[in-house]
Design a protein around this nucleic acid. Structure first.
Length: 551
RNA sequence: UGGGGGAUAGUUCAACGGUAGAACAUCGGACUCUGACUCCGAGAAUCUUGGUUCGAAUCCAGGUCCCCCAGCCA
């Protein structure tokens, strides 16, 4: 029996003890924004449990607030869950599917004198709710007759009253230490158009009133949510205790995901989009599933990441580097290798005949011979990476500098003979010589070089735009209340004049490739045959960067 | 000074009265036609004070610190 965390332990025990025969879970998003990596934790947990224990997992939209929910989000959520690799089969539900039943149960509560219509204003209700340390006061409308309550509630439903005029409240305990039990609101008047039910309803159930009963209707056995709902559980149970529900779900809570250098709050993410701080929900800097997808992150990497971080009840912040690790872990095995020069520096091979060029063999994946080989063009004029040359190198610099010899991958050894500078003193060109005997990359005399560098032929390479992404925030734990102050102005870096090997022009999938020695890059949807655009999914580990103290 | 939760390496998670373990990160080293990958190695933790016990991260009591709750949001 699979175990691994306290939730799975509970389920395993429930199955073993016979309390349940099979597990039914659910992922219950509210369609008021896009899914992010924090939701991925919940999705992997709920759908993962269903898979592991041979149960099922429902996708249920918690669509009880038409003032913030939109069809666009509904569609995006379904697409994202599928993309992540999960299937709810025929079990697609909406809390709004149950509006009729929930309404009937509300009348039941009224008949049992367990609910009443309150005419207090919002301010009055707030004032009467008490504080964390003082009990609240009963509403003056708390003891209306069943008949009056029923009449008022029906008129609320028929749309007779304006927004905010009245609410239906549970009659529980205004003195409870748990504020959720101080006569919580069950229904509020909302004259709004619902994405699914249109204008059929002018009252809508609250989350607390809808969630547990929806679970019960669907036969959910384990209703897994995040920690902030822990003190809603007594209320969740109260409804199930007092209503003729068809099953008895149980709620369990786990700690939501937090990631360094990012914010996983739908409110903040929405503001980032609406405020134009990013280009949309799928901006590759966003921690949304849509953004990660656009950046080139494979869904299996996200699943691997979620597996690594575990599930527990302690609040925690996961190092964003763990996600990077998972991405590299997946991509290293699958991504084809290519050469691309991000910041080109021209190299002229003085002893290579003018006008000549040749094709050399390059492997597509060093650990997978089945991936085959391709040809790369070599010529007299090349581009190498600006970072791969230093005129006055420090001790541990193994790459090209005046007089040193390096290998150009799959090609030849070259030696730097001369440095050409412009009027400003910047290096604009290198004059080098090559050793024809080292064709393919090995010296017959057995001599070694300390560096192998990537390169492209100046004549044959294709121009490309490369987008590098850095964390959206400068702070490891941005203040969600004032996130603008922590925004990283350099989260997007565009390299407009990169050169890539021609094989990249014909890339026909959105799968990332590895630009050797640099990282994993995926074509952006903006990319066209005339204007290639690549997103850096994640960089390669770079231990040399630490040596030279690069950021 | 209400109610509900939580504290184990730098980080995240295990250990369910019987040798505190893993992953990421860090630091060494090997290998290498990617300063990648891979491999080997190292340092690094039970919030605190008592108690129970042959034996406590685990059970009990007190304390400390952290998080959540006063929406007609979810």
């Amino acid at each position: 029996m699979p175990g691994g965390d306290f939730i799975r332990d509970i389920i395993a025990n429930d199955l073993k003890s016979g309390r349940i025969n099979s597990v039914v879970a659910r992922f219950p998003p509210e369609p008021n924004g896009y899914l992010h990596i924090g939701h991925a934790k919940s999705i992997c947990l709920n759908f993962g449990i269903a898979e592991e224990f041979s149960g099922r997992c429902h996708l249920r939209f918690d669509d009880t607030n038409p003032t913030r929910e939109e069809q666009e989000y509904i569609d995006a959520i379904e697409a994202d869950v599928r993309w992540l690799g999960f299937d709810w089969g025929k079990h697609l539900y909406h809390a709004s599917d149950y509006f009729e039943r929930l309404y009937g149960w509300a009348e039941d509560l009224i008949r049992k004198s367990l609910a009443y219509v309150d005419d207090q204003t919002q301010d009055e209700m707030r004032a009467a709710r008490g504080t964390l340390t003082e009990p609240g006061r009963n509403s003056p409308f708390r003891d209306r007759t069943v008949e009056e309550n029923l009449d008022l509630f029906r008129r609320m439903k028929s749309g007779e009253f304006p927004n905010g005029a009245r609410v239906l409240r549970a009659k529980i305990d205004m003195a409870s230490g748990n504020i959720n039990l101080r006569d919580p609101v069950l229904y509020r008047i909302l004259h709004a158009t619902h994405p699914r039910t249109g204008t059929a309803w002018s009252i809508y159930p609250s989350y607390d009133y809808a969630h547990g009963q929806s679970d019960a209707i669907e036969g959910v056995t384990h209703s897994i949510c995040t920690l902030e709902f822990e003190d809603h559980r007594p209320l969740y149970d109260w409804f199930l205790d007092h209503l003729p529900v068809p099953s008895r779900p149980r709620q369990y809570e786990f700690a939501r995901l937090n990631l360094t250098y990012t914010v996983l709050s739908k409110r903040v993410l929405t503001e980032l989009v609406r405020g134009g701080h990013v280009k949309g929900w799928d901006d590759p800097r966003m921690p949304t599933l849509a953004g990660l997808r656009r950046r080139g992150v494979p869904p299996s990497a996200i699943r691997d990441f979620i597996k690594r971080i575990g599930v527990a009840k302690a609040n925690s912040v996961v190092d964003a580097g763990v996600l990077d690790f998972s991405i590299r872990e997946v991509l290293n095995k699958t991504a084809l290798r290519r050469m691309a020069v991000l910041r080109p520096l021209k190299v002229v091979i003085e002893n290579y005949p003018e006008g000549q060029s040749e094709e050399l063999d390059a492997v597509n994946h060093p650990d997978d011979p089945a991936a085959g080989t391709r040809k790369v063009r070599f010529g007299r004029e090349l581009y190498i990476e600006q970072d791969d040359f230093m005129e006055n190198p420090p001790k541990k610099f193994f790459r090209l500098s005046p007089g040193t010899e390096v290998r150009l991958r799959y090609a030849y050894f070259i030696t730097c003979r001369e440095v050409v500078k412009n009027a400003a003193g910047e290096v604009i060109e290198l004059r080098c010589t090559y050793d024809p005997a080292t064709k393919g990359g090995n010296a017959p005399d057995g001599r070694k070089v300390k560096a192998t560098m990537h390169w492209v032929s100046a004549k044959h390479a294709v121009p490309a735009e490369i987008r590098l992404y850095n964390p959206l925030f400068n702070s490891a734990s941005p203040d969600a209340g004032n996130f603008a102050a922590d925004l990283n102005p350099n989260s997007l870096e565009v390299l407009a004049d990169a050169r890539v090997e021609p094989a990249l022009a014909g890339l026909n999938s959105a799968e990332p490739v590895q630009f050797e020695r640099q990282g994993y890059f995926a074509p952006d949807p903006d990319s066209t045959p005339d204007h290639l655009v690549f997103n850096r999914t994640v960089g390669l580990r770079d231990s040399f960067a630490k040596v030279v103290g690069k950021p």
